[in-house]
């Protein structure tokens, strides 16, 4: 985790299949470099993102979570990302109550053509989380059950 004093965060990514996953593919095909901090999971749409997933990731050792989807108005299922925005707002409120900094869990957009933006977003978010240092949920919230937290954010 610590490498000569510089901390390399572990970030879990949730990427929608149609835009942001393809943006990541495009960043790859175009060989755009970005930090190897993001470990990404494909979901069909950001509308599938259950807030529990984020809490689970933090609890299991992630230092941050990056959710990425299609731009508003461009979701391939028409409005899944609008639902994600609403759920994200609730989730953020819960995370704040736990004292988790806003920068650790972020929601961004990238269209399938935005490989550059994707790479830049990962780099920026990595840097922000690097500044914050490790989250260390296991030590800071030893008794916090993400399922119980999740109850609070569910619609």
């Amino acid at each position: 985790m610590s490498d000569n004093g510089t901390f390399t965060p572990v970030i879990v990514g949730f990427l929608c299949n149609w835009c942001s996953y393809r943006a990541a593919d495009l960043a790859g095909t175009s060989r755009m470099g970005y930090p190897a901090t993001l470990r990404d999971i494909r979901i069909m749409c950001t509308g599938r993102l259950d807030p529990t997933f984020v809490l689970r990731a933090l609890q299991k050792g992630a230092d941050g979570v990056l959710i990425m989807g299609c731009h508003p108005g461009q979701c391939h299922y028409q409005e899944g990302n609008y639902k994600a925005i609403r759920r994200f707002a609730l989730l953020r409120r819960t995370l704040r109550q736990l004292g988790i900094e806003d920068e650790r869990v972020q929601l961004h957009w990238a269209s399938a053509a935005e490989g550059v933006q994707f790479a830049q977003t990962v780099a920026r978010v990595t840097e922000q989380i690097r500044q914050l240092g490790p989250l260390d949920w296991a030590r800071n919230w030893p008794n916090e059950d993400p399922y119980a937290v999740e109850e609070a954010v569910h619609e």
Binding site: I41, C45, G47, R48, D50, Y77, G80
Partner: peptide, 24 residues
Amino acid sequence: CGTCVAACPSQVITGAHFTFDQLM
């Protein structure tokens, strides 16, 4: 798309191939 899956308060909607268990 899975929007209903994430929204169901009783967690009784299964999104085939992107189930709760699979993603967890």
